[in-house]
Simulated scan of single mutants.
Amino acid sequence: MGTSLTLGPNGRLSPNGMPPRCASCGALERHRAFRTVFDAVAPVLRGLGVLQFSPDPCAPREPFATFEVSEYDGPNHLDMAAIDRPDAAYDLVIANHVLEHVEDDIAALTEMARVAGPEGLVFLSVPDLLRVRRTKEYGYPRADKYGHWRLYGPDIVERWRRAVPDWQGLGVVAHDPVTAEPDRATILSRAPARLVPLRSALQAAGLDVFDAFAETPAL
């Protein structure tokens, strides 16, 4: 990621007035913030097989054994609500700012857990998680909201539980090192022991880590 910045989508600036987009790679605030998360946990995740929805640059490729990217309307487009892959095909599934684009998000969550398997991990983030108290469903993909079907609130945890009742989760708040803007991600797993070394690595890196099902710290 370079150091020359340009305007973001629709000509927007970051809340602090800085242009947010990297001119060389296209990364935005969330991509750089989540890269700090992946950098912190890279030693724990080394050698895993990954499926990432949307070709964003948050996760480096080097630590992983395999890295498959599903791109909407691209040559490898997978339906998140019906992923054409076997059970437990991956160790880690990444979906940053994608779930809000899916009509049946419960099916998508269930499918991500299925292909991650009982020991796998799901790295998930959605936009503006605390802007509303309850999730607001639009009923259709709104063109003025980048094709989003909904705006999630903290009650997203109820959807996680409905989709995958035995999921446990770590929440993490990270800051973009360029604009200092914060963002929030969640790491989910049906194997609680898989989350223990991740928590330790995130805390050692000085990141704010919390129980994703019990806490909603302010950004």
Rank of each mutant, 00 (worst) to 15 (best):
N76T: 13
A191K: 14
G153D: 07
R194P: 00
L13V: 02
S125A: 15
P217N: 10
R133F: 07
G120K: 04
V132K: 01
L13G: 04
P55N: 12
E215W: 08
D73L: 11
P154E: 02
Y72E: 10
Q168F: 05
I106L: 15
G11N: 08
P57T: 03
A185R: 05
R30K: 12
P127S: 04
P182D: 09
D73M: 11
P75W: 06
A143M: 13
S189V: 06
T110A: 15
S70R: 06
A116G: 12
P43I: 12
M112W: 07
H101E: 00
L198G: 01
M80G: 08
R61F: 10
P19F: 06
D105S: 06
R12I: 11
L109W: 01
R159S: 12
P127E: 03
V157H: 03
P75F: 03
Y140N: 05
I187E: 05
W160H: 06
L130H: 15
P19R: 10
E62T: 14
A108I: 08
A180G: 07
Y140P: 01
S189F: 00
P177F: 09
A113N: 12
A107D: 04
R114M: 09
E68W: 09
P118H: 10
A212K: 08
A143T: 11
E68L: 15
A185T: 04
D39I: 03
P118M: 05
S189K: 02
D105V: 13
P154R: 07
L170M: 02
L207R: 00
Q52D: 08
R184A: 11
A33K: 00
T110D: 09
P15R: 06
S189P: 08
G17K: 05
D105F: 08
P141H: 07
I83D: 03
F64L: 09
E71F: 01
F123I: 00
E215M: 13
W149Q: 05
L198R: 04
F34I: 00
A89C: 08
G139Q: 05
P43R: 08
T36E: 13
P60R: 11
P86H: 05
R46N: 09
T135R: 10
V98S: 09
R162T: 15
A108P: 02
V41M: 10
T3M: 11
R159N: 08
T6N: 10
A107H: 06
W149L: 08
M112E: 05
A108L: 12
G11K: 10
G11R: 06
A204D: 15
L124A: 01
V44D: 04
G139S: 13
M18W: 04
L121C: 07
P197N: 03
G74I: 02
Y140G: 08
G2P: 07
V172D: 03
A191F: 09
P43A: 10
P57I: 00
N96L: 13
A89T: 02
E181D: 05
T110C: 15
D144V: 07
V41A: 02
E62V: 13
H77A: 13
A42S: 14
F53D: 00
D128E: 15
L198C: 05
L202A: 04
S125P: 07
A82Y: 01
L124Y: 02
G153W: 06
R159W: 03
G139V: 02
T66Y: 05
F123W: 11
L202C: 12
D73A: 13
R30C: 04
D208I: 11
